[in-house]
Design a protein around this nucleic acid. Sequence first.
DNA 1: GTCTATACTACGATAGAC
DNA 2: GTCTATCGTAGTATAGAC
Lengths: 217, 217
Amino acid sequence: MQHEVPSAGSREKVLEVAEALFARRGFAGVGLREVAETAGLGKSSLFHHFKGKVQLYFAVLERVLRRMDLCLQPLFAAAIAPAARLDAVIDGLIDTLVEHPGSARLLLRALFEDDDFAPETLSEAEPTERILESLIARLDALLREGVAQGVFRPVSTPHMVQTLIGATVYHFASGDFGETLLGSPLCSSEQVRRRKDELRALLHHGLTAPAVVPSGG
Amino acid sequence: MQHEVPSAGSREKVLEVAEALFARRGFAGVGLREVAETAGLGKSSLFHHFKGKVQLYFAVLERVLRRMDLCLQPLFAAAIAPAARLDAVIDGLIDTLVEHPGSARLLLRALFEDDDFAPETLSEAEPTERILESLIARLDALLREGVAQGVFRPVSTPHMVQTLIGATVYHFASGDFGETLLGSPLCSSEQVRRRKDELRALLHHGLTAPAVVPSGG
DNA sequence: GTCTATACTACGATAGAC
DNA sequence: GTCTATCGTAGTATAGAC
């Protein structure tokens, strides 16, 4: 029973190819012809899998978000202290972003491009919005819990969510710029580890050095 | 000598319009026809001011970066302690991002889109790269100075640069998403002030609450 | 030198016939 | 699942009006 399943295989292949292209060049910058040919299909064959470009885009986005959700859900649900849970969630988020190149960019684009999509296609965006909202809600709830327990400072949790997104999603979306800045590939295991450590340290201590007790003068 | 200077006026108008459009939809998502007509010109008239789309794009980007550079340069040069200088730079950066809507998005795009521009047009990007590099270099130097003086923890300065970009540029580029998250306009004076305070507090203290001395058991 | 009109080529998304 | 057609619009070049 190892016969080819061209339709399912094609769909996956298309989604994979489209994910990379949309991540690199954004919605407007990608042509269906390019997607189709890279996936080894004729341009029009795409329409047997996706009704149009918008549908393909949201299918790609939804797949990415589902992947993240599946990865993060157990971490959010772990029965451990908020501080440790936040660390685990951040590590997990970074891991998914690294594991699936393009995720970070695609997500970043989805976050900051107030996509002016046609009114008719708004319903296509709904599933992705739902997943995204639930992820954000979980993160916000985790922060609130920590604040309520007094283990976190009384921060504005939405602002902290934004900061965390910037520190993770933006970082791993920053491509050549980030790579030049760091001097080595963003997704090298060394730099990934570094990123986790730096972010964790920032959250635990801030940037300023621990205050020294004025002893000698 | 107050006579109209139509060419300079048109050029400025085009740059203004193009800045907003490129910020909203990115390079590929903008048509020259739309730019021209919004600026009150015929499509072909653009080509008397800019050789092509790529040149227009980089002209816009360069203008944005120059504006930022002009604003931040004195702040970087201030003869005050690194910690206070960093605070001033961050506040100044946020102020420019807020003052010129679109700056944040345009900059964010420029940072994470490894623009696959034609080999011939690479020279157009050079001035913008120079300004950007100098800004980053100054920020990195400031962080290094603080670390050297022992007022900052021994952080990886490139990673901290990335975090700061995320916390400022991404935040103010996040549009509807950020606005929904915060519950009020990103650029409202209240939320801007909040952003500065939250970021400053994060840098000074981290997220975790100040450790309580175990007194009562 | 500054703007405009028209034309050209390429490619976009989509639809219907095989 | 592929091929070809359609039709709009993209970016660009040329020729001309102020």
